[in-house]
Amino acid sequence: MLRVMNRLLHMVFVLWAVATIMFFMFRLMTGNPLAAYIDTNFTIEQQQALMAQFGLDKPLWKQYIIYMGNLLQGELGQSFFYRKPVGEVLMNAFPNTIVLTMGALVIAYLFGIPVGAYLAWKRGTWVEGVGIPTVLATRAAPEFWLGMILLAVFAFNLGWFPSGGANTAGAEFDSELARFLSLDFLWHLILPALSLSLYLQGLPLLLMRSNMLEVMQEEFVTMARMKGLSEWAIIMRHAARNALLPVVTTFALSIGLSVGGNVVVETVFSWPGLGRLLVGAVASSDFPLAQGAFLLITLVLVTMNFVADLLYHTLDPRVSHGSRN
């Protein structure tokens, strides 16, 4: 219990630190947010009014106190660009990003785990000789390149999938949930999820493989062999179950990591998610929105870290025994 409390305190500290760094980083960057609004009819009065509206006419320390005070109340401020509460703007994009991330992760892990186990079993054969370099190559290929290739083949040439967006133009739905569950949404999700999962599959696959190799040296596997069990039963029922533990925890970690890392895929597929929002916010010096987006990503990341930690202790009691001693 104490350990959990300790971890929670860590989380709060990380969030505070990130919020503070973000706050000063954006304000000390050269670039006046007003520069985004220059127009032929832009007068000095309008410029001053904007400064006041954005709260930039106050001293920096005062801005910081106001910002932190609001943050404690769950207020992220007003987006300069959208002139709307940051929370509202973020919540429009966040579900789309989560669905894309989860979809891609599920594909990546459903593929990566068995294939990793299989490659471990085939150690030293030609299958490994072909498999590992292929996995590494797709893992290392730039995401936008993979995305463009998928677009060129499956959207432009074959016409099987749409070229972007999350829904068909003008599609109507009764609710957000109905939208997420619709075939139309799934049809739009496949290509971006696939290109993201091509990038994500490397980790579970390689991790699974090296765990398997380790586990297969252990005595209980030799024991199973001696009992005369089939190779398949040994791999799946005995070795894989043990090798799976670390992979499960990385799943949680990956959610946190890739929520912030979807920027490229979202832009290539015009996916209405957090990554694109973040890029736009930084490009237009929309401090509150950029800070809010980074903070949300940090929150997901540290939460998932925390979950991974708990999960690990629950799944593998040996770990918690170790820490208690």
Partner: peptide, 18 residues
């Protein structure tokens, strides 16, 4: 439609997405 990838717009025009 907001299409961030301008290279994809031609493909969309052909497929009728726009």
């Amino acid at each position: 439609r907001i299409v961030s990838n301008s290279e994809a717009t031609i493909s969309m025009l052909r497929s009728g997405e726009i």
